Simulated assay, not measured.
Amino acid sequence: MNIQWYPGHMAKATRLIKEDLKNVDIVVKLLDSRAVIRSENNDFNKILNQKKFIRVYNKCDLADENETMKWQNYFKEKGEDVFFIDSMSKKGINEVLSYLNNIKSTFRANREVRAMVVGIPNVGKSMFINSITKKSNAKTGNRPGVTLSKQWIKVKGEVYLLDTPGVLPPKFENLEDGVCLASIGSVKDTILDREELCLKLIEFLIERYPDKLKERYKLESVEKMPIEVYEDIGRKRGFLLKGGEIDYLRTAVTVLDEFKNGLIGRISFDRVCDL
């Protein structure tokens, strides 16, 4: 399965981000707590050069709590400024806002703080901005590609945020990266073979979170081949075609949607021990 999605607007957005960097004081790299490593676009690191940045991991409510704790300790030991937040419930939002307001004291000029928010599609940039401003300034949606233009937004205190479109790297390093990012919703599922993606996701869940998979779909066992578990899920949900054949597409759409919305459980793709 080949997973790539880099439409023209992403290339344009990357160029604009590079141009706008000279007008900002700090970059907020918004990432997904479920994919601590893979939700980071390494192309941004090349563009940022020496620009100051912080990492803010959104959707911590969907990530494995034990793995998140290990990541927090990992970054603490490295002395990095990192925040794990949930924009929906506003958990951790005040800490990020306080940090941005406090860095004003490091400026020579008496002016506002200008921060740029960057990230891959569907990490929740617009929801983050709406939560931190307590307004509905930015468009939101649980699908990639909602924000297509840049906009400056006033935040409480003396902070302005520059919202930017979500941008993926032009090419994924390997299939596992593509499966991870597609599963968390950063790649439009309409361009994918959703049945094959579902099979890859089930394979991952059998390996890392078998109990959650078994409990969600009321399965007797997941100690089987991924395709057999896939079919068991279809049968349990009653997704059958004429003649009793499994409706693989309907099953795939259901599993992928339930995973993205956290219904299978709190799950993390990336672990500190994998470094």
Rank of each mutant, 00 (worst) to 15 (best):
L30A: 03
Y74V: 00
D43V: 11
H9S: 11
N142P: 03
N94S: 15
D64K: 01
M69W: 00
K90W: 00
K52C: 00
I103S: 07
M10I: 06
G238D: 07
Q4T: 15
K12Q: 13
A109S: 14
V229H: 04
I267G: 13
L192D: 04
E80S: 02
F83C: 02
G185I: 05
D86T: 03
G92A: 09
G243F: 09
D25L: 03
G234Q: 09
E77M: 06
C180H: 09
H9N: 11
L21D: 00
R108A: 13
E67F: 02
K139H: 02
S98V: 02
A182F: 01
I206K: 09
M10A: 04
L249Y: 14
F172W: 05
G243W: 08
V82Q: 09
K46S: 14
V117G: 04
K156Y: 12
S98H: 08
V146M: 05
K214F: 05
Y230K: 10
E228P: 00
I267Q: 11
N110Q: 11
N110A: 13
G238H: 12
D274G: 04
Y99H: 15
M1R: 09
D163I: 09
E196L: 14
V272M: 08
P170Q: 10
I233L: 02
T147R: 01
N137R: 11
V222F: 01
E19C: 00
N41D: 01
I85N: 01
M10V: 07
L240M: 11
D247W: 08
S39C: 06
A11D: 12
N23S: 12
G262M: 07
T251L: 09
L205V: 03
S39I: 04
L197I: 12
E215P: 02
V155M: 14
F84E: 06
E207A: 08
V113S: 09
I103Y: 05
P144S: 04
Y99C: 08
K150F: 11
R114Q: 10
R114D: 03
R266S: 14
G124E: 11
R235N: 07
I227A: 13
R250G: 15
L197E: 07
M88D: 05
D61G: 00
G8T: 09
S126L: 10
N41Q: 06
E228M: 06
V159H: 02
V118M: 10
N102A: 14
E67K: 02
S39M: 08
R111M: 12
I129L: 13
P165R: 05
K150Y: 11
R237S: 03
K125Q: 05
S268D: 08
E158L: 02
P121D: 13
K59M: 07
S87Y: 04
Q4A: 15
Q72H: 05
E245P: 00
I37E: 13
N41F: 08
S105E: 13
E258T: 10
N110Y: 10
V167Q: 03
R55D: 14
E228T: 12
N137L: 14
T251A: 05
A13I: 09
K150L: 11
Y160H: 13
D61S: 04
V56K: 03
V118D: 02
K12W: 01
A63W: 04
G157F: 10
L148K: 15
E112L: 08
L31G: 04
F107Q: 12
W5D: 08
F53T: 01
D20W: 00
E112K: 15
N261G: 07
V96M: 04
N41L: 02
K212Y: 05
G262K: 10
